[in-house]
């Protein structure tokens, strides 16, 4: 883990390379969960790394470089999703679910938790993004609202719908042993 302390210089190239070797797979996975598109996930990661490198002087000492880049990557994925699908977050009541994945996407999605992945596919884009950000990325509702340019209540409703659908569509969850 690369952790900087006060007074230290910005992360070096070697530290970036080390972080990539250790965590690129996790960053890619996070981007893929947001975009559900391998190409967009790659682009998001590439953008994020270049962005992080350019802004490495802003890196908060004491933070972990991997975590900082992870956050930039998620934001980058959201940004590319917005560019790819303008207005994607504007129709919160849109009940259209994700189309079936392409063969290439399906290959990548196989590696995701199959059941969760399958269930996530039955969410709308907004529901999925809000749920992934809240549940997996542990963003606050306020942070999500800012990212998707919606008010917190709209984000809450998207998360509620996502949780309800996931509970309905993942029967094995109910059998989780206590």
């Amino acid at each position: 883990m690369v952790t900087k302390t006060k007074g230290q210089a910005p992360p070096s190239e070697a530290e970036f390379q080390q972080a990539i070797a250790q965590r690129a797979s996790r960053w890619y996975s996070a981007c893929l969960r947001i975009t559900r598109n391998p190409q967009l996930a790659e682009d998001a990661l590439q953008d994020a790394l270049l962005n992080a490198w350019t802004k490495r002087h802003q890196f908060q000492h004491g933070a972990r470089l991997e975590t900082w880049i992870h956050s930039i990557a998620v934001n980058s994925a959201l940004s590319l999703l917005r560019k790819q699908k303008p207005g994607v977050f504007s129709a919160l009541d849109d009940e259209v679910e994700d189309p079936a994945p392409s063969a290439e996407q399906a290959h990548h999605h196989e590696a995701l938790n199959a059941e969760l992945d399958s269930a996530l596919r039955n969410l709308t884009e907004v529901e999925r993004v809000c749920f992934v950000l809240r549940h997996l990325e542990e963003w606050t509702l306020t942070e999500i609202a800012i990212a998707v340019d919606k008010n917190a209540n709209a984000v809450k409703q998207a998360v509620f719908r996502a949780v309800r659908k996931l509970r309905e569509r993942m029967p094995t969850l109910a059998r989780t042993p206590s």
């Binding site: 996975s29 893929l32 590696a111 992945d117 549940h135 997996l136 509970r167 993942m170 109910a174 206590s178």
Partner: peptide, 12 residues
């Protein structure tokens, strides 16, 4: 329990 079960999936 159910939400805990929706843990972060394995990396792709």
């Amino acid at each position: 329990l159910e939400l805990d079960g929706l843990a972060e999936p394995a990396d792709v």
